[in-house]
């Protein structure tokens, strides 16, 4: 049953440019991390993580790109800022987690599918209405997540208290069009950059992992990360 773990061949496994790439996108010096564990100690989500925060930082330091980008922890960070607030080395840890999530998206990883679906559905709602339409978002998410009944019990109390707007409150003027235009530009630039990104990703990912890098996962990502058209309204 037990699969032996061979020693990590660091020279071979490391992606030396990875730490610099994370540093560049986040503006944070990862080399400053001395592994004190303050982030892990104070993180409300440590019990849910597969890799505790300080080890995420360690994986980045060592340039173990695939292990970082495929972990669930980076999707479960709620950006509550406890780590950033307390880091003795002034590292904006939450921002680093953000950047790792961006990279994971580009590399086609989404081990916490519902977290990604929620963010995509939220932004799709914003792109469509200019503001988030809560009822629409809830409905779309319920269907996409495959758990339509999870929050069904909340409908009645919300309805009776007038908290469930059934019609979206959209911006009154050009706002809706302007927001749509921001998303359109974002998607266009992302598509333009996609060639570069995927090129990067393929080049850097050393030994490709079958699970995350299958063509299917990749095409799903390309569609989902461009949250414009789907809303379900």
């Amino acid at each position: 049953m037990h699969i032996p773990t061979p020693p990590l061949d660091l020279e071979h496994a490391r992606d030396a440019s990875f730490q610099a790439a994370v540093a560049s996108e986040s503006g944070q010096c990862l080399a400053s991390c001395y592994q004190c564990g303050m982030c892990t100690a104070g993180c409300a989500y440590t019990p849910d993580y597969d890799v505790p925060v300080h080890q995420v930082m360690r994986l980045v330091q060592l340039g173990l790109r695939e292990q970082v980008l495929s972990c669930r922890a980076i999707w479960l960070c709620a950006s509550c800022q406890a780590c950033t607030t307390r880091c003795p080395n002034n590292i904006d840890v939450a921002r680093v987690m953000d950047v790792l999530r961006h990279m994971a998206r580009r590399a086609g990883h989404a081990p916490e599918a519902n977290v990604k679906t929620f963010a995509d559905s939220f932004l799709a709602s914003v792109a469509r209405h200019g503001r988030v339409f809560e009822a629409g978002l809830a409905a779309v998410f319920a269907i996409k997540s495959g758990r339509p009944m999870q929050d069904a019990g909340l409908g009645l109390p919300m309805l009776t208290r007038g908290k469930l707007a059934l019609i979206p409150h959209e911006p009154t003027g050009n706002g809706k069009a302007e927001v749509a235009a921001i998303f359109a530009r974002f998607n266009r630039f992302a598509d333009q950059g996609a060639g570069r990104h995927s090129h990067d990703d393929v080049q850097r990912s050393g030994t490709p992992k079958a699970s995350a890098n299958t063509p299917k996962a990749r095409s799903d990502t390309a569609k989902d990360s461009a949250p414009t058209t789907e809303d379900g309204q």
Binding site: A78, S79, D98, R101, H102, R105, F118, A119, D120, F122, L123, V126, G130, R131, V132, P171, G175, K176, E178, V179, S225, P227
Partner: peptide, 11 residues
């Protein structure tokens, strides 16, 4: 319009 909230910066 929407400020983007948490979902935007995670993307």
């Amino acid at each position: 319009s929407c400020c983007g909230s948490t979902p935007a910066h995670t993307v």
